[in-house]
Design a binder for these strands. Sequence first.
DNA 1: GTCAATTCACATGAAAGAGACCACGGTCTAGTG
DNA 2: CTAGACCGTGGTCTCTTTCATGTGAATTGACGA
Length: 405
Amino acid sequence: MGKELDEIFDSFDKKAIFKDKFLLQAEHKPTAIPHREEQIKQIAAILAPVLRGERTSNLFLYGKTGTGKTLSIQFVRDELLKRARKNPDFNLRIEYINCKLRKVSDTEYRILAELIKKLGGSVPDTGLPTVAVYNKFIEIIDKEKLILILIFDEIDQAVKKISDNFLYNLTRLNSELSKSQIGVIGISNDLTFLDSLDPRIKSSLSEEELVFPPYNALQLQEILKKRAMFAFKSGVLQDGVIEKCAAFAAREHGDARRALDLLRIAGELAERDNSNKIHVKYIDEANEKIERDKILDVVKTEPKQFQLVLLAIVELSELQKDKKEPVFTGDVYNLYQELCKKHKTEILTQRRVSDIIQEFDMLGIINVRVISKGRGGRMREIKLVVSNKIAEKVKEIIHDSLNYN
DNA sequence: GTCAATTCACATGAAAGAGACCACGGTCTAGTG
DNA sequence: CTAGACCGTGGTCTCTTTCATGTGAATTGACGA
């Protein structure tokens, strides 16, 4: 056994593939962001007044995932902070909050708590009235002259969960501050988000707007090439690998992050195979692996009731596959009830299951469309978007986790 | 045949309850001098 | 006398139920050509 392990470790030691894998990881911040020069300049121009200690216009950024929004804004942020340090007249703080992380920001309370924590205060996780947290927030900010810029990434998620008067409160907060000033930057990948807002909030939040268009395949290639040059040893990339990665990602609305992930995982797969070259086939494998990991991870961590609902969906779509009939809400609910009985679990109402189905849609495991069959009623048409192989795996996992507790 | 009303099977919303967690302030207890 | 243990109250959170209202088009049925 020891010898075998040695072999495994040895082969990793040789590092046949990577020179610097970190360059391909999502956390890596490149020093240059290709094809985003224009946006960066504009952001900088909009935010520049903070260097004089003035409030900036609120700013709103759109763009699909992986179009460089977060990267660009963080780039500008770092530059601003670098400069502002030289000016002792006031404090500049730019805080970044990702509203997608559930633990951080499912509620108004938590977002505020998170902000306060970042600003050096502390708030209990629960127990205080929200108003008290607001007051504490204001108190902390207004202690001294502070120019505060709040960046809310994926702000649409937060608003969906909370309601938009959170944003209203926030934009109105300036009037309660005597010394300090707050600027808000919202980032959203839902292009229709602004339209769904209350007009008053909309106008105050989006004093400035900026759109990040998706990268096209050529741009993606360029980005990948730049990174790959330093991330991989020379000569490990087979011809066409970059092109294929770019093509895959371009299909996914020009998602650069996805492209980089693909490349990195393809590299890892090659490494595991003891290959010293990344072949095109590894890209396909990597693509599959990303999908699989994403879904299996979700499935594993989902609570029992969710798993039962998903199991019902998976089994039904299996049944219906030959007939080419899609699955509908009612079918799912019926089977779900049976499964609950079988596993001695209490049965949730249809109302709740309806919501659960919708959550699976948002997680990207199923595809949902509301259709009307005329007098036959109105319901969701549910399609599983995972391959058969993964669906099988999902079933296995759910069965396991249901039987073990 | 045509057109509006009807009807189905849910979707979608709003409100509120249950049970868990927690902070805060007050009261009680035990250890200390 | 004081620090810490121990309540009770009131707040939040998540998950869920209950009640209410909305909805798109197939079907129905009355109507007129």
